[in-house]
């Protein structure tokens, strides 16, 4: 299904995030990628749908090499990969339904998007998914009125609206409290299994990964250092992934995980500056 070969990513800043990663997923399973901040987890996931352009290597999804696609084909490939984000990344000012239907954008023309006129089957699928993630009745609520857990449910539903062949999930629980985290993980794993979709999931919470994933991959400093069943994760392996020295050297390197936002200027400053 998914085969990653010798994937290397070097950022223009010179930082080498991935040092030739090899990974393949051959059955519908939930694969958790664990590792310290700056290990390259986020980069790896973003290389697969090319939100981050890989430097060298190949990523083959069901026979097509994603790294070689042009703009148009890339959009077609992206339709087949659903993505779930740490910060949910919903369109805050739109309703839950619009956010869900945005998962079908790759299939709908611009004119229909413009008029918010979606195919009836999509609408029905959206209602059904809302039910499945436990948000029935919320279709007309604006996303910015939801709690963190509810937003992540919308994020999950949006990804599943794509009817994806692969789910890419980036730290789905890092912004949530422990209880909600568990609920969200349960929903993700349940829906992935039910629809038979393989999922690649970044997570820094090891116990959570162990409890829910079918397979665990340990990433340290851009290299895969562990690949096996959750119960094979021993103390020894964990030290290998999260070694204390590693912590100290990677702390300053997490450019791909925390992006700094510029300071927002006050309203006065903008208006005065404009005239």
């Amino acid at each position: 299904m998914l085969t990653i070969t010798d994937l290397v990513k070097q950022y223009p800043t010179g930082l080498k995030a991935l040092h030739g990663v090899n990974l393949s997923i051959d059955e519908p399973q939930v694969v958790a990628i664990i590792g310290p901040s700056g290990a390259g987890k986020s980069t790896l996931i973003r290389c697969i749908n090319r939100l981050v352009e890989p430097t060298t290597g190949s990523i083959i999804l069901d026979g097509t090499d994603v790294t070689k696609l042009g703009r148009r084909e890339l959009r077609r490939a992206r339709r087949r990969m659903g993505m779930i984000f740490q910060e949910y990344n919903l369109v805050e000012r739109l309703t839950v339904m619009e956010n869900l239907l945005s998962g079908r954008l790759g299939y709908v023309g611009f004119w229909r998007t413009f008029r918010r006129n979606y195919p009836p089957d999509d609408v029905q699928a959206a209602y059904q998914l809302l039910d499945r993630v436990g948000l029935e009745g919320y279709e007309n609520t604006r996303a910015d009125a939801l709690s963190g857990g509810q937003r992540q449910r919308v994020g999950i539903a949006r990804a599943l609206m794509q009817q994806p062949d692969l789910l890419l999930i980036d730290e789905p629980t890092a912004s949530l409290d422990p209880k909600t985290s568990r609920q969200i993980m349960r929903i993700i794993v349940k829906l992935a299994h039910e629809s038979g979709t393989p999922a690649l999931l970044n997570i820094h919470d090891v116990p959570l990964a162990q409890a829910h994933a079918d397979r665990v991959v340990g990433l340290a400093d851009g290299n895969i250092v562990f690949d096996g069943k959750p119960d094979e994760l021993t103390e020894e392996v964990l030290t290998q992934i999260y070694g204390e020295e590693d912590w100290s050297t990677t702390v300053g390197h997490d450019e791909d995980e925390t992006r700094k936002r510029p300071r927002r200027r006050t309203k006065l400053e903008r208006e005065a500056a404009a005239g």
Partner: peptide, 15 residues
């Protein structure tokens, strides 16, 4: 992030 999410669904530039 929102833009990234919409891009990840395979949406066109205009969308």
């Amino acid at each position: 992030g929102t833009v990234e999410a919409i891009e990840a669904t395979g949406a066109s530039r205009l969308q």
